[in-house]
């Protein structure tokens, strides 16, 4: 991590006129983490790191909003110097300024506070703040909400469509649970977060890429932050992906289709037993599958006599 450049810090008491701008907030993060399938350990590779798809979409949305409102775009990131190449590329795509708050490991609320402070200190008057909906490293997607609070702005998060009704007013579509959508008319200034599919970030022209330099990034000291990661009850996994809805007329059919239960080679079965015998039956089955040692005392080879098998019952798979 490079040392913050004191010359780039700005005295909050400066009398420079505020710059109106659309702000794009981005996070340099692991894009393709190697996840150990057994312990869930994550092996981040900085070469496979960058900006999440949703953050790239956020920058593209910000660039379009900037054009619509006739203001420049400022990209803001909280993180270490590893983010600089990505920020340099954003400068080449058309972002006017890139500000990096130099700190790492800050929790969401702190990140939001740092961004708000940076905007204030840099005299940036945000017309709109556009974020990705959440980072690809297991982020909670809470920074935009904290940021809206810090800036005292309205918020519309998890957007799948965004368009300008008239300058100063957006028509946005939010994804809701149950495949429902919410159409919102949003007055600016506001904080929005967008999904990755909303827009593809334009490619940086070659000449601009060659001209951009890491020195063009404005580095703001972020101070040291203490972030206590909450203990995880389960190993971290990347977020699940959206898969096509299962087909079937009835809920049961769809559940079965989703689990793939009936395509299993071993027919599923349900066994009804008293608790102790049920536990024994489960252990026996686990031994058959090789998950536990079948040398345990009390292991039985034969099925329990009073077990009732019901082939017409949805499967209870081990």
């Amino acid at each position: 991590m490079s040392a913050p450049d004191p010359s780039t810090t700005v005295d909050p008491s400066t009398t420079v006129r505020p710059t109106r701008a659309v702000v794009a907030c981005v996070k340099f993060t692991t894009i393709l983490p190697e996840v150990d399938p057994l312990d869930g350990g994550v092996d981040p590779d900085v070469r496979r790191a960058g900006l999440s798809e949703s953050d790239l979409a956020a920058v593209e949305v910000a660039l379009r909003l900037g054009v619509d409102h006739g203001v420049p775009v400022v990209a803001v990131s909280v993180g270490g110097a590893d983010a600089d190449p990505s920020l340099v590329e954003l400068l080449a795509t058309g972002v006017a300024r890139a500000v990096r708050v130099d700190t790492e490991g800050a929790p969401s609320a702190t990140v939001a506070g740092l961004i708000a402070s940076a905007l204030h200190d840099r005299r940036i008057d945000a017309v709109a703040v556009v974020c990705g909906d959440y980072s690809s490293d297991g982020g909670s997607g809470s920074v935009p909400a904290f940021l809206a609070h810090e800036l005292g702005m309205a918020q519309a998060l998890g957007l799948i469509e965004i368009e300008v009704e008239v300058p100063g007013s957006l028509r946005v579509v939010r994804r809701l649970d149950g495949a429902r959508r919410e159409v919102v008319s949003l007055q600016l200034p506001a904080v929005v977060s967008v999904e990755g599919g909303v827009a593809d970030l334009r490619r940086a022209p070659l000449a601009a890429l060659l001209a951009a330099r890491p020195g063009d990034i404005e580095v703001v000291p972020g101070g040291s932050t203490v972030h206590l990661e909450p203990a995880r009850q389960r190993p971290w996994r990347p977020r699940s992906r959206v898969v096509p809805a299962p087909q079937g007329e009835h809920a049961l059919d769809r559940i079965v289709a989703l689990t793939g239960a009936l395509v299993e080679r071993t027919p599923p079965r349900t066994i009804e037993l008293p608790p102790a015998e049920a536990a024994q039956a489960i252990l026996d089955q686990l031994a058959v599958w090789g998950y536990v040692d079948d040398e345990r005392p009390g292991t039985t080879d034969a099925p329990t006599p009073d077990a009732v098998e019901r082939s017409d019952t949805p499967p209870l798979l081990g």
Binding site: R202, R203, A204, P205, L206, A207, A208, L209, L210
Partner: peptide, 9 residues
């Protein structure tokens, strides 16, 4: 010529 916009060098 590259595949970037303004991509001649």
């Amino acid at each position: 010529r590259t595949d970037r916009p303004d991509g001649d060098l």
